[in-house]
Structures are given as C-alpha cells and as structure tokens.
C-alpha cells in the first residue's frame, strides 16, 4: 500500500512529505545547539553524516554490510526455500496439510527470538547458528503464504486444466504456480523483511562482524554517532530490499497490475 501512496505523489505532495523530516532535523539540530542533552546522548546530524562517510572510507562499514548481507542471504534462501516447498506440498496434498499444518501453526506460536539461546546451544555461537536463526524467521511467512496461494487457486482454473489433460509438471508451472504467485511474492517480501530484522537481532546478540555488531560495539564505547549511522544504514538497506522486491513484483505480476491499476 505504501507504494501506491508513493506513486501517486505529485511534486506538491513531495514538499508536504518533507515537512516532518525537516522538522525532525531542525528540532534535532536546535536541541544540540541549545545543549539540551550531553554529547553522549545526542550529536549533531552532520556528525552522523561525517561518521558515515568516515566509516565508508575506512572500509569498516562496507565489510560489516557485506557480512550482514551474506548472512541474511544464506538464511533467507535456506528458510524461504524450505518454506516454499513445504507450503507448496501442503497446498497440493490435503493429507500433508492435515498432518503438518497444525504442527507448523503451533511452532509459529513460539516468539522466534526465544529460540536464539536454544539455537546457540545446538549449533554453537558461530555463523551456523545465525544462519539457522535467520532461516527460521524467513520460513514462517513463506510457508503460510505459499500454502494460501496454492490452495487458493480457483477451482475453475483447476477444472480447465483437467479439461485440457494437464499432467503434473505442466499443471504446476502453468496453472498452480502462476495462480499462487501474488501470494508467494507477499511471502517473499515478509520473509525478507523478517530475515533482515533477524540478522540485526542475531548480530546484536553476539557477533564479531556485521552492522548489528558495529552498533553494539559503538554502544559499549558510547559512540552514539556510530549507533545512529548504523540505524540509518539498516533502514536504507531494508528500504532498498523492499524497492527491489516491488520492482520484481511489478514485472512478474504485470497481468495483475493492469487489472486494478495499482499494486496491492
């Protein structure tokens, strides 16, 4: 929905959209100038920008971003692909759905962060446990959305495939998967969003690299500029991921875009 809002924006709306960020900046800067807070609590916006540039220049930032992205990518791929296949199978087989479905729903009740200590006990505190943790975050939205999409393909299309003698593979690729695609893409988006949150969580929890690690470390040294820069970076990365997915969604779901003239 945010995109449809953004898309309809005219230049006037763009100006309106700048009001709040500008106010925040002004308030921020004046709070610093009036010395309302100590240096340890609030630094000028410009300092944060400078810190960001410095971090980028030394290569620290890039390295941390790369290791976070590596984690998020492997965790996401692992979790989302498992979720996709399980959701697909559950959507196709009511037997599997009846056996596995309630189990997965029960597992979803566990707030996934509670599993972090458990995962560390199982896999140690290194890279593997982080990837597993992220993949758990990625798994759930994917399995539910794929399942919903697959079981939601209208009966009339299934019937049509029967009339034309569609066998399993063609049935899957021409009817079921395209029909489930909108829901699957929603799953991918949620899944990637959660992966990104989970990687930050995992890195805050204990790590030797990554943007989250950079923030924890800076917090312990009372370098608030780095903490804020880190916050900015994870926001930008999250935003970029979302934009990329929207572009993919728009391309893949062309048939639907023209249908209602806007993205869901």
């Amino acid at each position: 929905m945010s995109k449809s809002l953004l898309k309809r924006f005219e230049w006037k709306d763009k100006l309106l959209a700048l009001i709040v960020p500008l106010l925040v900046l002004v308030a921020w800067q004046s709070a610093v100038s009036l010395q309302l807070f100590s240096e340890m609590i609030l630094v000028p916006p410009l300092t944060v920008m400078n810190t960001l540039v410095d971090l980028a220049r030394t290569g620290d930032l890039t390295n941390n971003i790369i290791s976070s992205l590596k984690r998020v990518l492997s965790g996401f791929l692992l979790g989302a692909s498992t979720g996709f296949f399980l959701g697909l199978l559950m959507g196709l087989s009511s037997l599997l759905d009846r056996f596995v479905g309630p189990l997965i729903k029960a597992c979803k009740q566990v707030p996934q962060f509670a599993l972090m200590p458990l995962i560390i006990l199982w896999f140690g505190i290194d890279e593997v446990s982080k990837v597993v943790f992220i993949s758990i975050g990625a798994f759930f939205p994917m399995v539910f959305n794929t399942y919903q999409g697959v079981s939601g393909v209208p009966k009339k299309y299934r019937e049509l495939a029967r009339v034309f003698n569609y066998k399993s593979f063609r049935y899957l690729t021409k009817v079921i998967l395209p029909g489930a695609l909108p829901s699957i893409i929603t799953g991918v988006r949620h899944s990637l969003g959660l992966s990104w949150m989970f990687v930050v969580g995992a890195e805050l929890f204990g790590s030797e690299s990554g943007v989250g690690y950079m923030m924890v470390w800076a917090r312990q040294l009372f370098q608030i500029d780095i903490v804020m820069a880190g916050l900015f970076v994870i926001g930008i990365i999250g935003f970029t991921m979302n934009i990329i997915l929207q572009i993919i969604e728009k391309r893949v779901l062309r048939w639907r875009v023209s249908f209602d003239g806007r993205m869901a």
């Binding site: 299309y157 009339v163 021409k174 009817v175 029909g179 048939w255 639907r256």
Partner: peptide, 21 residues
C-alpha cells in the same frame, strides 16, 4: 464456459495455446 476462464496470468495468445501440447 459461461465465464471465459481465461487464465489472467497468460496473454491472450498463450491462453489460446493453453491446450496445445
């Protein structure tokens, strides 16, 4: 059918080719 049942994700051409194997 009464409802055309064209698959919305296929183009008109692909829909016509739907049964061709």
């Amino acid at each position: 059918f009464q409802d055309h049942r064209l698959l919305p994700w296929l183009t008109v051409g692909e829909n016509v080719a739907f049964g061709l194997d």
